[in-house]
Design a protein around this nucleic acid. Sequence first.
DNA 1: CTGTTAGCGCATTCAT
DNA 2: ATGAATGCGCTAACAG
Lengths: 360, 360
Amino acid sequence: MTVTLADVAARARVSPATVSRVLNGNYPVAATTRERVLRAVDELDYVLNGPASSLAAATSDLVGILVNDIADPFFGIMAGAAQTEIGGQEGTGRAGGEKLAVVCNTGGSPERELTYLTLLQRQRAAAVVLTGGALEDPDHIAAMASKLAKLADAGTRVVLCGRPPLPDGEAIVAALAFDNRGGGRRLTEHLLALGHRKIGYVAGPAERTTTRHRLEGHREALGAGGVSGAAGEAADQELLTVHGPYTRRSGYEATLELLRRAPDLTAVIGANDTVALGACAAIRDQGLRIPQDISVAGFDDLPFSVDAMPALTTVRLPLYEAGARAGRLAMGTEAPPPGGIATIGAELMVRGSTGVARVG
Amino acid sequence: MTVTLADVAARARVSPATVSRVLNGNYPVAATTRERVLRAVDELDYVLNGPASSLAAATSDLVGILVNDIADPFFGIMAGAAQTEIGGQEGTGRAGGEKLAVVCNTGGSPERELTYLTLLQRQRAAAVVLTGGALEDPDHIAAMASKLAKLADAGTRVVLCGRPPLPDGEAIVAALAFDNRGGGRRLTEHLLALGHRKIGYVAGPAERTTTRHRLEGHREALGAGGVSGAAGEAADQELLTVHGPYTRRSGYEATLELLRRAPDLTAVIGANDTVALGACAAIRDQGLRIPQDISVAGFDDLPFSVDAMPALTTVRLPLYEAGARAGRLAMGTEAPPPGGIATIGAELMVRGSTGVARVG
DNA sequence: CTGTTAGCGCATTCAT
DNA sequence: ATGAATGCGCTAACAG
């Protein structure tokens, strides 16, 4: 029924072992023999049996890329870059040594994150790339650390991309972390320099590393700027912060809420660009102008941010480069950074959505 | 070293077959025995060997979802929906019967599309979902048809989502096609009703089904509206059409080109929303207003389209619903439509970016 | 309901 | 450079 290695061997008048060797290309085979075998492969339209191959070799060519939200270009860009790096070597059309880079969407659910890792472990994946911020729940962190350690034990290469290293990060090949704190700080410094003192902050989901780091950078800048230094002002800051998911809707509603709490607001920072666009919509719906009445800033610099009117001031994260590097790290084609940890810079992009704070 | 089924069996004092049965849950096992086995699984921290399992059973739990561009929410939304439907049954944390839904990014390259299919075939994937428009090159169509037939032969369920059926579509389980032609027609009818007669069209990549169908709908409406009926006007239409990739940049540059060719243009249609946003930027950079001077419309109704200023008139495609349905079709949990083919409606969303055509 | 037996298709020793 | 033999870990008949 289905063509096997033995069939190819018979047709090429060689032993199965020889066919295996030419297919895997990791063993010397006479040129004429190889030719004969490849011809037989084509003629029979043979396709290697992956499971059998993986079983015998005790490793597979599967590489998993985990993302929190596949519909968000933030992850799409990183995942696409990693996948290009991993599975990009334009196949021969035949059965070569290509890796199968696949992306798995956890939807931000910690359970599904663990489930996917188990599934990948079950497949004896060659590598796993985890992208984006992590949940800060202690139980989940422990479960993840244990799971990743087992994967590493079984020979799976683990790479973190846009995610800070785990407490006990021995198991991982490398962690590429974004400088969310620094980015957040620079963004707020920019607003302070424009004279803003009442700055609303629509933060991301609570208990996520990304959310916390960006917020910490923001408050760091406020403190250094003397805005939240005085007693009583910490509570004020709490008042000016609202948490929510990374959606336009969250940005819209949180901004309305902030405007209600503090009508004298002169600027709003969004957890990311999508949230910031929601904030823009809310502000305009209130009859206010951007940036004359209220400045708005985002985070990530996704492709559409430059298209907003006015164009969005934001913090650029080199998503493609980070994803590509993670892909190479997973393949073992790039040396890990010293200590296994690298911090990736975040660059402030000043555009039209932020301006001098209005007076009064 | 690594824990196997036999180890679990020994610890639970049952035969390997029994362990296999409780793990796969597709065979009656005494409750107390099952309990004992599951305890042993947990104690030993056993994880099923996927390749071995797939080899013995001659099928795997892998489901591939192919997308043209993972960084584009158009695909992200469909893929995410399909993945939720396929791998969504919140795992027990242990090793259950979950399917592994994975998305593969072809980047629009026909070679990579075929390579991924071969890789999936090699893994003996349980199902494959192909999303988005297809390339119309005859060679590629033939290669795809042949490859899909082989996959189907090997027991892989093939589902098309947002892609028209293949010429000889016997092999596929179902094809869910978007009504791109109807959507394109209604969009242009809307513009004609507003008095537009000179309509620029920034089309998608040539030789793609999606591009052709949307364009056909557009021209159908023009013909019915008497705009391109007269002789000589066909050439005029060619002049008003520019092809390019689905990018903002393409929309921007093509629009500048269209404006150069026909300064009396009163409307521009983008191949999709991203392209339309690029068109908006170009128009504004020329000092023109939307929609007073020029109307702009897109396609897809991606989440950000409503955030443009003014909000984008576009054609809504129910991407999430289509993806979810494709997922269920792939799982076999939903009956295929009659004839295996279903056309999914495209709804016109009129917003602020289109208005009455200026006179003169 | 449970145990026994046989492969699944390939990679890899060892020979030659 | 090639062939022969062995086993990877599991599922699927069959018995019982």
